[in-house]
């Protein structure tokens, strides 16, 4: 790990008691949901992480605790380092405080995570779906959401599949 990064990670560990994983020279710091806004503010103001590169999530279904990790990928232009924060979220408490007050870009990114995973960002100014149509059921990137695969029709199974199509019912 980079010297500069090490110092930052240490500071995070001291302040938030977070655990750290290292993989291929990248640091993944685990913080709790209620600490995330403080952690981001600290990183932005003290350690010059000006850019929130990515905000996404990952689903670990069928594991329930934690079911999701919300991932914050930060970049510092001044020091030229990156850092990843991960917030584990349990399936019975799908809530993370919003980071929109720290980074403006979190606004749309959080809407996307809400749309795709159903993680609620508390205090978000505009909590709507962003990519999927309004009124859609479910959250597509969850592992228990089907891909929505449509079977290809060949000659041998043409009629079977035809029966399942929407127009067959009309």
């Amino acid at each position: 790990m980079d010297k500069k990064l090490e110092k930052i990670v240490q500071a995070l560990q001291e302040q938030f008691g977070s655990s750290v994983e290292e993989f291929r020279n990248e640091a993944h710091v685990f913080v709790k949901a209620e600490q995330i806004v403080d952690a981001l503010t600290l990183l932005r103001d003290k350690f010059e992480f000006e850019l929130l590169s990515a905000l996404t999530a990952s689903d670990y279904y069928p594991q329930e605790t934690p079911r999701f990790h919300v991932i914050y990928q930060l970049s510092s232009l001044a020091q030229n380092i990156t850092l990843q924060l991960r917030v584990p979220v349990n399936s019975d408490q799908l809530k993370v405080p919003t980071a929109t007050r720290v980074y403006d870009t979190a606004n749309w990114r959080e809407r996307e995570v809400f749309d795709m995973f159903g993680v609620v960002f508390e205090g978000h100014p505009d909590a709507r779906r962003i990519l999927n149509p309004e009124g859609m059921d479910g959250h597509p990137l969850r592992k228990d959401f089907p891909l929505g695969y449509e079977e290809p029709q060949f000659t041998f199974n043409y009629d079977d599949i035809d029966l399942k199509k929407i127009y067959a019912k009309e």
């Binding site: 999927n132 891909l147 929505g148 449509e150």
Partner: peptide
Amino acid sequence: CGGVFNNYAILQ
């Protein structure tokens, strides 16, 4: 026919 995207979001 939906092309490479055989999924929930794209019309087949």
